[in-house]
């Protein structure tokens, strides 16, 4: 049962994620960005709700569309903006782009590579290391609906199940793999049914309801921590912008977007908090304002930060 303070925290983290995302999109559209970026708009309830159900010692391997998860686990916004701008103080020291390579084991975050779902077996291996060392920790990772078509999805979940790994998989079903709709990707209504073939629980939740995502993840995390093995959670949502910043997503029917706009995870959660007397609108406005200032300061600092020295290009290929 979430306390009022926790519910306001959930709102704060989602709002911080949205504020960062909005500023990022505006900055890149305004031509001040570098490389591509991926908006998380519409997915905030998934990365915040699931990430909030974890303990700090648990390990997460987020993907490129999980900005909220990085923020929630303590990655400073300036480090993320600096990464996106290729600066020396970015998470990857200018080595990797946007939220790729934004790993930091100090925050128990595993960095992402483009090849989806390659973080999936890696996160299973992280979970296997906990079993090996008899540690009561859990590993969690995210994939999209697109990833569920890859053979590695099957290899990884089968391995996790056989090994009874303390592992949770969140599927962010956002209707489209780049431009390809679900109907051209699979012949089933719910990806979660695939869990049955691994003998593990699979549930479908409303990916725009942060408390539903939190509750489902908490159940799965507790099961994993108790030694009962992995779970799969399919969060249904909608990708509200294009695949990446360059993509206008003209292939998505506008009516579909309008329908999902009414289900915006942050707007609906704010209304719920007010309706249930957890917070008043002024309080929530104040949080939103605080988030906007926080990310604006972070962007300004990142833009002032130096680029890496070209002479360092060959440094750090190998671990000492």
């Amino acid at each position: 049962m979430l306390s009022n303070e926790q519910r306001i925290e959930l709102y704060y983290w989602m709002q911080l994620t949205r504020a960062f995302d909005d500023l990022m999109v505006a900055t890149w559209r305004g031509g001040r960005g570098l490389g591509g970026v991926f908006s998380q708009r519409g997915h905030e309830a998934i990365s915040i709700g699931s990430g909030y159900a974890l303990a700090p010692e648990d390990v997460v391997a987020p993907m490129h569309r999980d900005l909220g998860c990085y923020l929630l686990r303590g990655m400073a916004p300036v480090r993320i903006f600096a990464n996106m701008l290729g600066r020396a103080n970015g998470v990857s020291r200018g080595r990797d782009v946007n939220l790729h390579g934004a790993g930091d084991l100090g925050l128990n975050l595993v960095g992402f590579i483009s090849h989806l779902p390659h973080s999936l077996p890696v996160a299973v291996g992280v979970a296997m290391s906990f079993t090996y060392r008899r540690e009561a920790r859990v590993a969690l990772t995210y994939v999209g609906d697109g990833s569920s078509s890859a053979g590695l999805f099957h290899e990884s979940l089968n391995l996790a199940s056989v090994q009874k790994a303390p592992f949770v998989l969140i599927i962010e079903n956002n209707q489209y793999a780049y431009s390809t709709p679900l109907s051209q990707q699979m012949n089933i209504a719910d990806i979660a049914v695939r869990a049955a073939s691994y003998g593990i629980p699979g549930v479908v939740v409303d990916g725009n309801d942060v408390e539903a995502v939190y509750a489902a993840t908490k159940t799965a995390v507790e099961r994993a921590r108790a030694g009962d093995g992995p779970s799969l959670i399919e969060c249904k949502t909608m990708r509200m912008l294009g695949h990446a910043i360059h993509d206008g997503a003209e292939y998505v029917p506008r009516e579909l977007l309008a329908e999902w706009e009414k289900r915006d995870p942050i707007v609906t959660y704010a209304a719920r908090l007010v309706a249930e007397g957890v917070a008043d609108q002024d309080e929530l406005n104040e949080i939103a304002h605080r988030c906007a200032v926080e990310v604006a300061d972070a962007l300004a600092e990142a833009e002032r930060s130096p680029f890496p020295d070209a002479a360092t290009v060959t440094e750090g290929v190998y671990a000492p």
Binding site: L120, P121, V122, G125, V126, A127, S129, A139, S156, L159
Partner: peptide, 21 residues
Amino acid sequence: NMPMAELGFIGAATGMALMGL
């Protein structure tokens, strides 16, 4: 013993190695 899925278990080995194994 691993299932016959090299891609999966090499990835898992990477995860274990990241944790210091």
